[in-house]
Amino acid sequence: MARSDAGKLSLILLMTPFLMWIVLLIILPQIGIGYLSFQEKVGPRQYVFGVGNYVEFLSEPIYWNTLLRTAWMSILVTILALMIGFPVAYYIAKIARKRSRAALFLLCLIPLWVSDLVRAFGWIVLLRETGVISGALQSVGLIGGPVELLYNDITVVIGLVYTVVLFMIVPLVSTLEGMDNSLLEAGYNLGGTRFTVFRMIVVPYAMPGIVAGCIIVFMLTAGSYLTPILLGGKNSMWFTEQIYTQFITRYNWESGSTFGVLLLLFTSAVVWLGLRLTGQNLASTVAKE
């Protein structure tokens, strides 16, 4: 009896910080922006409940175009990160010898520990008009004058892929490491070509890792702020920038909250769809490490 009382007490003691954290810092604030997004401003310091902010979002093409643009660029970045990261992950997990495997994996992780800001700054030093690449191209005579490589969509995509590709590689490596080579051998023995073995054995085996990587990469990209703004400049048209502008520059918290809710709904919808299509679930996908 005393023991179960102690058990109950410790459950309460452990539950309290957890609930305070989740309720006060996650749930209530999300409800807060949800509530604020339904507050229409009708006069100075006067608000009524209504969907005006959402109507405004839909009636202003620049707003929803920014969201659509953020969406398709995030999807593009996710696909590119998968295509670029998969061969690297496959090499680390299946081909490299034991010792170089650990070293390569660590090499992959180093940029993970470097701030977004430093990475974006590195790209700026390389790519701007007076930057390293422009200078190098001039000195070998490929181009006549300085060339501005920043502030275009390709640079933004390159920078974003750079920022997120590691989050694709890590889950892929941990999934592929579990794959037994005899599966591949069996595939070849049964007459499979390289391509069929890859498509019928490797890809299905790696699916949990692919899904996990894609979800993390997509969320990080859609929510990223620094890379699109620093590499894309004034015309980057990124949705998080819109949120910042509404909140800090225009001090219009109601429409800023609306945009926040929309971004959250949108990214959650994509993640949910991805999980549904591949039959995975969130807890096991995100919390596997």
Partner: peptide
């Protein structure tokens, strides 16, 4: 982990 950082910021 899956809520974008900007949104965590504005909601708080």
């Amino acid at each position: 982990l899956v809520i974008p950082g900007v949104i965590l910021g504005i909601s708080i």
